[in-house]
Amino acid sequence: MSDSLESPRAGSGHADGEPLPPPHGGHDSHADPLLALANVEVLYAEVILALKGVSLSVPRAGCVALLGANGAGKSTTLKAISGIIDAEDGRVSAGGIIFDGRSIRGHDTAGVVRAGLVHVMEGRRVLPHMTVAQNLIIGGHMFPSTVAMRRALDAVYQAIPRLSELRTRTAGYLSGGEQQLLVIGRAIMAEPKLMLIDEPSLGLAPRMVEEVFAVLHRLREQGLALLIVEQNTRVALALADYGYVMEGGRIVLEGQADELRANEDVREFYLGLDREGGRKSFRDIKHYRRRKRWLG
């Protein structure tokens, strides 16, 4: 790692024995982060340690990207934050999760959503037998009054006009991109401060990826903080201000988005580019990746 970026969790593997930076040394831009994870460990079935001390923080505005290969622990990180992990036989076994000044570690998901943090799961999980409008109304199930819910519904239709056209359609029959827009719309019905979003581009046509990310850009401009997990590193780093790279349940690299984009390893492993900026042959990347791993 001969770059200028910090690599906070790489301590044990380093020969030069540089001291470990503090748990969330991260970016300087937020003295008061919206979300802060400090050395979070997750245990599945009391046996499998899926996260091995993850520290990250998300500022009150803007977007943070969580990058990495399959099985690196990105989705687990999101599930640990939102509390969904409890229903999957997992638990946060160590570390702290602070959202908006309060600890949410071990809270149930309903409480976390009410606090203003909503999790959009991977795989376009619409409620397939219900209409688009019903899906959105369910997203706003915790509004105290119907009037407030209607107002939020109109705001969603305004933010994502495509959903307005589709409101009476059955969600299960929408195209993949439309379903992704729907789950995003459903999440903002809860009027969150922070949205965790897992692989929004997965399995979508390139044009739909553009449309989905255009919506995310717009939400970001309206002041919604985002923590995005993506395998499509190019679009993720275009949206994000800051990024973390995960590998084997640890964060191995972090930095501003443009620094990451310029980083040699990120270019090679996640963007598929060589040093001159040309595209590498896919076969080379695969071959190379199988051998090179970050030491964690």
Partner: peptide, 18 residues
């Protein structure tokens, strides 16, 4: 409707805070 969401899929309902 929120309860119907539970009938559709427990995990989705959980994620929405139901």
């Amino acid at each position: 409707l929120a309860m119907s969401a539970v009938a559709e899929d427990h995990q989705i309902a959980l994620a929405m805070g139901i």
